[in-house]
Structures are given as C-alpha cells and as structure tokens.
Design a protein around this nucleic acid. Sequence first.
DNA 1: TACAAAGTGGAGTAACTATTCCATTCTGTC
DNA 2: GACAGAATGGAATAGTTACTCCACTTTGTA
Lengths: 209, 209
Amino acid sequence: MSTEGDITPEPRLTRKGRATRERIVTTAAGLMFERGVAGTSLEDVQATAGVSSSQIYHYFRDKRALIRAVITCQTDAVLGAQQPLLGRLDSVTALRQWRDLLVGFQRERHYEGGCPIGSLAGELAEVDPEARAALATGFDRWEAAIRAGIQAMRDRGDLPSDANPERLATALLVALQGGLLLTQVRRDTSALEAGLDTVIEHIASMTVR
Amino acid sequence: MSTEGDITPEPRLTRKGRATRERIVTTAAGLMFERGVAGTSLEDVQATAGVSSSQIYHYFRDKRALIRAVITCQTDAVLGAQQPLLGRLDSVTALRQWRDLLVGFQRERHYEGGCPIGSLAGELAEVDPEARAALATGFDRWEAAIRAGIQAMRDRGDLPSDANPERLATALLVALQGGLLLTQVRRDTSALEAGLDTVIEHIASMTVR
DNA sequence: TACAAAGTGGAGTAACTATTCCATTCTGTC
DNA sequence: GACAGAATGGAATAGTTACTCCACTTTGTA
C-alpha cells in the first residue's frame, strides 16, 4: 500500500522483530494522537508498548525516524478507515455518505484529536522538513483518491466537461481539514458539516440535469 | 478589543512593566509561531526578548499562562491584519479582495507557519483545556466578523432570505483554516485558493440580481 | 545442533528546561 | 526626597528526556 518511510538499508527483521517494531509504531501513533508529538516521550512509548529503550533504538535511528514511521502508519490507517467509500466517491450520494462517515467518526471519539494526519502536520510542518514531506505525501494520496471519484463523475458525464476535478478534490480535502480542526477546538461537528456540505452542494449544483 | 486572558487580580503594572510584559508576549508569540510551542523554551524567550527568567515569572504564573497570553495576542494580531476588509465583507467583491489578501500573506511569508491561531490550536487543543477555550473564542471572533458581512448582504437583499449566513461564515472559516494548513504542508497556496474560491463561488451563485 | 545475527534488558549520561529564590535597583506617589 | 511596591539580575534546583552502552537471550539457518 505504501513504501516504508525509511530508506535505510534496513537490516532484515525476523517475525518477532517485525511484530515489536509494529507495536512500537502503533503505540507511538496512539499516544501522539492523544497527547501530541511533543507530549509523548519515548519513555511513555516504552512503558505503553512494553519495550525497553534499546528496542526503540534498535528499530529506529532516533525519535524523528519513529515519527516518520508514525506518519505513514497514520496515513494508512486514516485512508483505510474510509474504505471502501473513499475508493468510490463518484456520485453526490457517495460524497454525502462519506461526509456522514467522517462526521460519525468525530462523534465516536467525542470530537477529540482532530485529524490524525492534520494534527501531526500542525505540529511538525515547521519543525521537521522530512516529516513535512511525508505529510504532504499523505495528503496527496488522500486527495488523489477523492479526485479519482470526481473525475469519474465528469468522465461519465454527470459533471460538465469544464468542471475541474482537481480543484474540487482539493476543496473537499480543505473543507475536511479545516472542519476537523474546528471540530477539535469547538468540540462540535457543525463546522465540519458546514464545510463539507457547502462544497458538496456546490458539486451537486454543477451536476448535469 | 479583547479582555485579558488572565483573571488574576493582576498587580498594577508600571509603564515600564507593561512594556516588558508586552515584549515577552510578542517575542514568545513570534518564536512559537516559527518553532511551535513545544519547540520554544522559556530560555529562548528570555534570550530573544532580553529579559531574565525572574521577569517572565513576575508577569506570568507559569508557561501555560504565557501561552494563553500569546493566544489572545495572536488573535488580536490576526484579526487586526485583516482590517479594514474583515469589517466589511458584505459583497462578493469584498470577499474576493479578502481572499487575495490572505493568499498574499502566505506568499509573503513563503508559505511558512500556516495560521497563527490554527497552528496553536493543533498543538494545544488536546493538551491544555484553557488554551483550547481561548482558541475557540478566537475562532468565534473571527467567524463573527465574517458572518456580519454575509448577514449584511442578506439583509440588503443581495442574498435570498433562505441563505444561512452562519453556515456560510463557518464554511469560509473552515476553508481558510484547511487551506492554510495545506498551504503550510505543501508550500503552495493552491489549496487555500481552491478552498476559498469554491465557497465564495457558491455564495456568488446564490446572489439575487 | 551450532553459530551468526537479531532481539532484549536495563543501567547510565549529558543536556535541557521549568520553576524558585533572594538580593538589588528602579518608579511613582505622598 | 523618602518609602513602598514594582522591576530586574542571576544563580540554584529538581525533574525530564533523548540517547548510549554492554551484557545477555532468542531466532533462523546451514
């Protein structure tokens, strides 16, 4: 699904090693989502994952390398959680279902945490250039999936030929990110709904017939 | 313009004291914008502002109190920088000028830093409840200003009576925040433009004429 | 089954950071 | 111009954290 963030020659991992590595990454991802990257010490990760500090440094060169692994892990998780809908956003109905799914996610987690990718972005973009690049890749994958659906609508003739799938997909991702940030701050999904609905309505208003 | 975040009995400050306090806050705001809250130590603030640690603790109970002061400082700065346009967003033309202003700001600062309020939000929302509340207030002030303009358009009859200024204002703020986050990550304003333009076009398409 | 490589435990370190304390100097007011 | 309170300087501290090191155990393979 996605290539590993590390380009290191990566020493071969045994079955057990892979499991430990994955446990470290998912634990770190969870903690960083809850408490932020800066609020998560490696000691926290050790305790929660049940590993020793030498293990973390056995699998990752330093904290930044772990963070990069967390980014790709979260990207996969976020995109995965939206499947299969995200793979078929090729109708206004599908877009509305997707909207409902996203709003539902936020409610489930009591409006906490915002977007797992977006919140990492806010904290890391100016601080770690490699992280920024990884996050950009994550957003690109997300946007590409949305764009594919809208493109299909246009190809099929549901949208006029002068519709711009790229722009519309970007606008949807923008509404999603902004909506999630405001949901997190306000503890209320109305901003997410207003943002997504406005863009989806706009798309609906362009549909032919 | 905005009440002080601190409800402390606040000992009277002398002219010099006020100046020092303000220097600490604006310096901290600048550093935290550049390097993030977690990436800014009080030692950094001391060195940059040219004050000693006792001074910081003379004016603020602890780092969190300083952070809250930074939040209101940035809110004032951000809203102020959008004046006088933000006070008169009562036409599609004004909305488009405002959009251009915002896009211009990002270009000026080389797409770095994102939104001064939004980036604080991403870092603090889950970590400091009081900060979250202060940030929510900041977003509320921002949204209220936008809403006032759209409300004026409706009252004047430029928008149909079933238009929802509240919802539209929220959608604009959402597009702005999402757009700024993606601008920051991608080092490119096209997402900001796509987001704002889509919402503004939607509003334009509703105008009565 | 032997052995090289991978995995693990855990103590140790050096640096950083928020916060405190106290002595000294400056400001504004009576 | 004297005095109380505000402002400042700077050293000290206690806790945290990323990261290192080395000894020991487990795993996979020839």
